[in-house]
């Protein structure tokens, strides 16, 4: 179960990840490869966070891990369709 303090930490973490990534995407929007690398980097951070969070929370299961992996994959495929 997520406690109040943990909720605030997670919210700040994800807000920073969203804003930081969007800033980098806007800054490099004319580049052919960088937006893909940015979303790839964000996906790696997202997956690492998921592993750590669910390990501490003792809620890490294969099903949950697959959901995170597929969501990250979906994010990458969405962007690759436009750029590549």
């Amino acid at each position: 179960m997520i406690k109040g303090k943990q909720k605030i930490t997670n919210t700040i973490f994800f807000l920073s990840l969203i804003l930081g990534s969007i800033f980098l995407i806007i800054k490099n929007k004319d580049s052919q490869d960088l937006p893909i690398f940015i979303i790839f980097g964000a996906s790696v951070i997202y997956l690492t966070w998921a592993l750590i969070f669910h390990k501490i929370d003792k809620s890490l299961t294969l099903g949950i891990l697959i959901e995170y992996l597929l969501t990250a994959m979906l994010g990458l495929i969405l962007l690759m369709g436009v750029i590549i």
């Binding site: 994800f14 990840l17 969203i18 990534s21 969007i22 995407i25 806007i26 929007k29 937006p35 940015i38 979303i39 964000a42 996906s43 997202y46 969501t71 990250a72 979906l74 994010g75 990458l76 969405l78 962007l79 436009v82 750029i83």
Partner: peptide, 15 residues
């Protein structure tokens, strides 16, 4: 979060 980053990527990039 990851989906909103992907949406921003979709919005700001062009072919």
């Amino acid at each position: 979060s990851i989906l909103s980053i992907a949406s921003a990527g979709l919005y700001f990039t062009n072919p």
